[in-house]
Design a protein around this nucleic acid. Sequence first.
DNA 1: AAGAGGCCCTGATAGC
DNA 2: TGCTATCAGGGCCTCT
Length: 287
Amino acid sequence: MPELPEVEIVKQSLDKKITNKIIKKVIIRNRNFRIKIPPKFEELLTNKVIKKVSRFSKYVTLNFSDGSYCLIHLGMSGTIHLFDRTKKNKFTNTSFYSSQNLPKKHNHIEIQFDNIKIIYNDPRRFGFFQYIENQKKLEKRLHHLGPEPFSKLFNLKYIRKSFLNKKKNIKNFLIDQKFVSGIGNIYASEILFFCKINPFQKVINLNKDDYKKIVFFSREVLNKAIKKGGSSIRNFKNVSGKQGNYQKEFKVYFRENLQCLRNRCIGKIKKKVITNRSTFFCNKCQK
DNA sequence: AAGAGGCCCTGATAGC
DNA sequence: TGCTATCAGGGCCTCT
């Protein structure tokens, strides 16, 4: 579900609410995630103080004051709900495609503070919570990830080197977290639209001008999405709480058979599957 | 050894 | 108030 912008919104709202708070109690109702939650997890987290909440790529970390971490990934369907007793028992929704109310099922993880608790809901359980002892281990854990689009490491030289002698198409490159981290299936299509690059284009055929556009629009699209509060798709109905607005800006995603939105372009948006993932693009202006 | 494909899991929706 | 198939914003593992 969530790509970098959505995870950033979750991180921001969490950081605002739980920084400096002490974990009083942890409740695990289901331990079977992508990574199994070990029995000692609750004990390890209890009494920890949140120094701050951070994010790298699509991962959130609760940074504890003793130098340890809780690494969080939302997978495809994970949402975090924040319950604040000081605010007249109202839920503050830090998630993206659920209603303001807590879902009835799949509330697997609950972390309680004084007056505040967070509940992790994840129907498909592709996400995970993982305790990490120290910074060194965290770095090792995330070592396989490439730079974020915002990083100065994500530059023309890096792209040229990465594309050298590669036979993959550009769409698969953009969603490959080893190459650049944080871009998922939706934003990959959106970014390539702005670049006017066909998602099937083999990277070997791209030139320096294309590299520049890839860097520029990767940053631009993700930044805009963050500014708009991320994208909320699915469960459009009965969403009354906070939800993102970037889905209204989509140029190609979910727009199969509709008119291309580029000025004076007469193309239609096509949907094609690339390695099992839907990909959207204009058949005229993306070459 | 890069790259394609299967798989983890549940829920929503489309089509019959 | 049916079934059944397909698809979903991710990432890891296996096979070739």
